[in-house]
């Protein structure tokens, strides 16, 4: 009798729980430590720009404006005039237009599969020592300039949240895609080493 009662006492709330709010119950925090950041805090912090560009801020810029920003912000000092001849990585290909992209230099605004990656890196990582100080317009402009000097877009094309993710990069689909990672599996299926 006693054990049966105990069973009922335990079972009923469990059943109720699973009927009424199983989702809420399963997803409620276990430890309740920490706080929920506001949407605004997240927006300010979230500088990851995915291939769809959904995280891009409002703003716009073209190659012409970008050339000015490139000069004003001192990009020339490290990357050289028009991306050639500096100590920092080269930013304009010296190869002819007919050379396939994989035979050209490893240049971000040339080889990147998405133009959003160029925007993301300028925004988070440049200029050296003053990272994070460029405005969205300046980043759009610089991105346009670097894509233009690599013959990816025309000089007058305006880049913004809508147009940037749509830029057709020269690499097209000719690059390796990440495999489906599997736990406790060889790093490459069929590769013994």
């Amino acid at each position: 009798m006693g054990s049966l009662n105990l069973l009922r006492v335990v079972t009923i709330p469990l059943l109720l729980g699973s009927l009424l709010g199983s989702t809420a119950f399963a997803q409620s925090p276990t430890y309740g430590v920490g706080r929920t950041p506001t949407a605004e805090e997240i927006r300010r912090m979230d500088i990851s720009i995915g291939p769809t560009g959904e995280e891009l801020p409002p703003g716009r810029g073209s190659a012409k404006e970008g050339a000015q920003v490139y000069a004003q912000k001192g990009c020339v000092g490290c990357h050289g005039a028009a991306g050639i001849g500096g100590l920092a990585p080269i930013l304009q290909s010296k190869q002819g237009a007919d050379v396939p992209v994989w035979k050209k230099e490893r240049i971000l605004p040339l080889r990147a599969p998405h133009a959003t990656i160029v925007w993301d890196f300028i925004n988070r990582g440049m200029p050296l020592g003053l990272e994070g100080t460029l405005t969205p317009n300046e980043v759009y402009s610089l991105t346009a300039y670097l894509l233009f000097i690599n013959k990816v877009i025309p000089e007058d094309q305006v880049l913004d949240k809508q147009s940037l993710p749509k830029v057709k990069m020269p690499i097209g689909d000719e690059y390796g895609k990440p495999h489906q990672f599997k736990l406790n599996a060889p790093r490459l299926e069929g590769y013994p080493y």
Binding site: P51, I117, F121, G176, K177, P178, Y191
Partner: peptide, 21 residues
């Protein structure tokens, strides 16, 4: 989906097989 950061740009390879390594 896969977000290609600057770090992953460094890993970019022509073939899936080499990328996996």
């Amino acid at each position: 989906r896969f977000y290609m950061n600057y770090n992953e740009f460094g890993h970019l390879r022509p073939e899936d097989k080499e990328l996996a390594l």
